[in-house]
Design a protein around this nucleic acid. Structure first.
Lengths: 208, 208, 208, 208
DNA sequence: AATGAATGAGGGTTCATTCAT
DNA sequence: GATGAATGAACCCTCATTCAT
């Protein structure tokens, strides 16, 4: 017999729950946000939520998973358009500079960073996160930088992995500060300055 | 009547509790660590702890307060020795590069960052934190950079506040990554590369 | 309009549900077994089950009802063949001795005993059960024993009701032990020893 | 520093909780009785109960443990007075015959039997229970019977283990029936008849 | 008749905080 | 000052039952 609701319906509902959870977690943090907060936010019943996720922790994990995937997809999409390594790197920073600095986004960052710290306290989760960091985030920039070196756009002496790591660290640091300080934080100037600094470093040669 | 125990005794006991709390928070995070964890760590009784602090939150706040003060004191101490702005800035990075990368320190960072995020969710706390950031941390570097500009060590065009903000953001980002990834993270190389990059920027001129 | 499905079909489905429930209850006990366990066991949907039974409790009651009826029918059937009281009583014990000691049967006993205790906590149910005990189980043995007394097979002094009660109690006790201990319990030897003892008592005269 | 309350105080409180639990379990059965029932029965707070026991299940286990120990102690005590095997066995049945048939006792039996069945569904628990059955309950009667055989009080041909098993099975069966049926069940007559039957069997020779 | 998503009361458990000793 | 037993609000999760499709 045909299923009562489509997979699509269920997927939509899951997403709705995850988005409600994101709001709730953003407001109070994962630990302090209660299932009842998610209930209130989503308009669903407690039981309904447990029909889709088996625990609050699972909601957290899947939420972060989903957002990471969206993030990565967005990053990769922005590089489809061919171009030089320089252009790609510029595009990368442009993506970050253009993020809409809503309060919602500010809260989301808090949730992400909190999750990052959380995962540092759980061996299993930590492995997932560091693997993802190495295999996805690091690789993304390393490849661009290596391409730039091959094409003589960037200085041969630079260490792509070190630069990539620096960029990601700085971006996370900037986000961290923005997440706490909010509107008064010169987020966009920071991103721009970072770009400038990195390009200077890549062109004139760091660690030379 | 004379106090039964000296203030010094009380101060020592408070510090002992705060240090025990730091261990407990480092292990599980603030929310998950329980008063009983602190009891176990400190060897004191529950009642004793509540004689010195009126709530778990207060322990958290005072712990962070204490550590911030220690931090700042340490930073300032390292600049007492006179020197050029360059030397001071170099000393600044050297401080960070030389931090002992123990597991204990890794956990402490987690607690600090968690607190940072936590404070972003509470208006009152947030004000304390951003004020402290502006008045202490920012000022520290801004003053050095301004001094360097006055002494023609650094390029006139640079924006001291922006650079300072960038440095702090990057340091926090590097710490964040180290806190999650741990041993495998090239913490010291990152700090060194950051120094190099910042000096290059300050000397050859960013935003020029 | 004619019924869409025959009564026979419905009866079959009900029996299927009851049998699935028996398995589920046997595995975890009535309280711990969930409707979802019955759903999984039966392959039907939750709604389907509630079309046939109005509650979990009702499934329990009807299951026990059904099994009691089967039990009684089986017992009575084995006495249809004429014979002396002795022969009948021997047949009675033989029935019990020959029960296949499967794990399934072991679990079923658990369900029955659990129900027995359950019913002791509900006045209404208790009345049903004790009436059934008096009117069916007791009567069954009492009649045989009385017949044996009339035919001078058994000692006149024996109290049929007391003996019957003893036999049922002992059988239940043996089943109880078997249900917990399982394979290692000398079930059949116990039944045989019980028979021997009862016959000795009935012939040489108990309570004389 | 001296403990705030004595071990004795704590032991007393534990016993109080266990007794309250026994009442609650007796009323509704283990599963249906809630912690709140125990709270209501005991007059303590929920937290207090969890200071002494880590879960409802543990209360159940310790309750049964305690009662078993009391039971065994009582049984053994009644044999301290020397005597022939016959006298000891008689004393054994007398103990059971003289039990006060209060409603409270009736309910207790229900809890015990329920626990017995419960343990049949948990491998670990089952091992504890069957070991205890073998090492304590069986041994108790087997030793008396063997002594009786050695002293020529009982028939040489009897199988002590089988008889013991039969006695315990029957006693449990009688208790089971009493627990459901209550006042109207001829408990004492049953115990007396059992004694008579067993003695007849032991003296004139069963399985001969 | 059948389906299974939705409901929400209710249960076990935790833990910051209090306070009698 | 110190102790740790007691408190109870609050939380996560379960599951019998309902009902729109």
């Amino acid at each position: 017999m045909a299923p009562i609701v489509s997979d699509e319906y269920k997927e939509k509902k899951k997403r709705h729950i995850l988005e409600s959870a994101l709001k709730a977690f953003g407001e109070k943090g994962f630990q302090l946000a209660t299932i009842d907060d998610i209930v209130a936010e989503s308009g669903l019943s407690k039981g309904a939520i447990y029909n889709y996720f088996k625990s609050k922790e699972e909601i957290y994990l899947q939420l972060m998973q989903m957002r990471t995937e969206q993030n990565i997809a967005k990053l990769k999409r922005s590089f489809l358009e061919r171009g030089t390594a320089k252009e790609k790197l510029h595009q990368f920073f442009k993506n970050y500079a253009e993020i809409e600095l809503s309060q919602k986004w500010q809260k989301m960052i808090g949730v992400h960073l909190e999750f990052w710290i959380h995962s540092g306290r759980d061996e299993e989760l930590k492995k997932v996160m560091t693997d993802r960091y190495d295999d996805v985030y690091q690789v993304l920039l390393v490849e661009i930088i290596e391409e730039g070196i091959r094409q003589n756009e960037f200085n041969k002496e630079t260490d792509p992995s070190l630069i990539s790591s620096m960029v990601w660290g700085t971006i996370d640091g900037i986000c961290l500060h923005y997440s706490v300080i909010g509107r008064n934080y010169p987020y966009q100037e920071q991103i721009r300055a970072l770009e400038e600094m990195i390009f200077m470093y890549l062109e004139k040669g760091g660690s030379a």
